[in-house]
Write a protein that binds this DNA or RNA. Structure first.
Lengths: 106, 106
DNA sequence: TGTTCATATAAATTTCCATTTATGTGCTGA
DNA sequence: TCAGCACATAAATGGAAATTTATATGAACA
């Protein structure tokens, strides 16, 4: 009972993490900042998204602890906090692609 | 340009898959049917959720191709379609737990 | 100090999603 | 055929989330 309740809590955390990964623009941001830190304006330019939208998604990614923030003068740099997040994005992409291609071959 | 667009599409599929994994009750269902197929009523009982709610989540999981369906008489059995989905749930749980515990140690 | 640039936040809108309640559909056995 | 069980679907509700538009904060520099 108690043990099962613990599982439920862990799964709730996992679900929350998955929710952070459930937006295409956020995944694009994660990939972009996976190799080197990027300023908000750099992300805005490279992904061609509005600045408030990027700030909004970065706030969400920060809240779910997927990114870290670092201010340098007028710029604010974001970078991936844990490399496993990148593996997760790749695993999601691979599984999604495989599931879809398997469907087409029925 | 075209190549980047392809990436965007793959990421959109990955995001959609993540969205299917972004609900605690759906994760509980996936774990429950990961070892053996289960009927809807069995899932309802074991997870203590309402029957329409379970049906709703199963429909979502089926739509994202995470589960397969099999009718046997009056019962409808659901099971995991790909064992990597289970790995994904575990990876999400582990990463979420680690990110949270790292936060507490600052 | 005031202007400019980088970023964050607020407000408003639209869409989506989880859950409940109520009802329908399909299979089985009397 | 009809009564009952298993499951699905519809409708309604409340709440969250993505995006846009507008505005505020905060740092650098003249």
């Amino acid at each position: 009972m108690t043990h099962n309740q613990l599982d439920v809590d862990v799964l709730k955390n996992a679900a929350h993490l998955a929710k952070s990964l459930s937006d295409g623009n956020r995944l694009r941001i994660l990939l972009l900042i996976s190799q080197e830190k990027k300023s908000v304006s750099a992300i805005v330019q490279e992904l061609n998204l509005s600045q408030p939208l990027v700030s909004h998604h970065l706030k969400e990614l920060k809240h779910s602890l997927l990114v870290t923030v670092q201010r340098e003068g007028p710029f604010v740099y974001y970078q991936l906090s844990d490399s496993r997040s990148l593996d997760m994005v790749h695993a999601l992409s691979e599984l999604a692609t495989d599931l879809l291609s398997a469907k087409k071959n029925f």
